[in-house]
């Protein structure tokens, strides 16, 4: 098993919660893992990315080589396009469609979505909407994780257990909402794939 994922978003959007869940699930399955994060200046609303590498063999580089990532998992549409050079030919872009507009020259959103739609392999999902439907708009990152989960070779139970463990501190209700959001994202991606 080998899975390289570029997580993308804007500083403050909390992409690291996604990385944490995947990390916990990977450890439970005795996989090797390296996860390089962005700390510091860019966290103030700048473009941030995290390189997550999972493998059943030892991993050398903390950074993913160009053209080798299986997935770009982005919580923001514009950011989903920033790291395409890392994506392999068969790789998928899984992205949220809700823009995070904090720059004056943010391009036309329809244009961005059109560009995403023109990529060979992609799943675009309105994670805020799906999260709201599941009970809490704030669980959109778990919707995104759910949408990416069919592409990541980790057992479903491990992912669920990891979600439970990171939200346990916030009570049973939060655990349930986030699991629901995760499954809603997962079904969306599965349906998209089957079409």
């Amino acid at each position: 098993m080998k899975c390289d994922i570029v997580l993308a978003g804007v500083g403050g959007q909390g992409i690291l919660s996604i990385a944490t869940v995947l990390g916990l699930a990977a450890i439970e399955n005795n996989l090797y893992l390296k996860q390089a994060e962005t700390h510091g200046m860019s966290q103030r609303g700048g473009a941030v990315q995290s390189y997550l590498r999972l493998s059943d063999q030892p991993i050398h580089s903390d950074l993913i080589p160009s053209g080798e990532a299986q997935l770009i998992l982005s919580v923001e549409p514009l950011e989903s396009l920033r790291y395409l050079s890392f994506l392999s030919e068969e790789g998928y872009v899984i992205t949220n469609t809700t823009p995070y507009v904090n720059i004056p020259d943010y391009p036309d959103v329809e244009g961005v979505l059109k560009t995403i739609a023109s990529l060979p392999h992609q799943v675009a999902i309105d994670a805020e909407f799906v999260a709201k439907e599941s009970g809490n708009a704030k669980s959109s990152n778990m919707v995104m994780l759910g949408a990416a989960s069919p592409f990541i070779d980790l057992p479903l139970e491990s992912l669920e257990a990891a979600i439970r463990s990171i939200f346990a501190r916030k009570g049973e209700e939060m655990v349930a909402v986030n699991l629901k959001a995760f499954h809603a994202g997962r079904s969306f991606a599965e349906q998209t794939l089957n079409h």
Partner: peptide, 18 residues
């Protein structure tokens, strides 16, 4: 090495801000 996928156009930067 593989080169990855490329965009036709360049993307606007998103620098950090207050």
């Amino acid at each position: 090495k593989p080169v990855g996928q490329e965009l036709q156009s360049t993307l606007v930067n998103r620098p950090p801000a207050l």
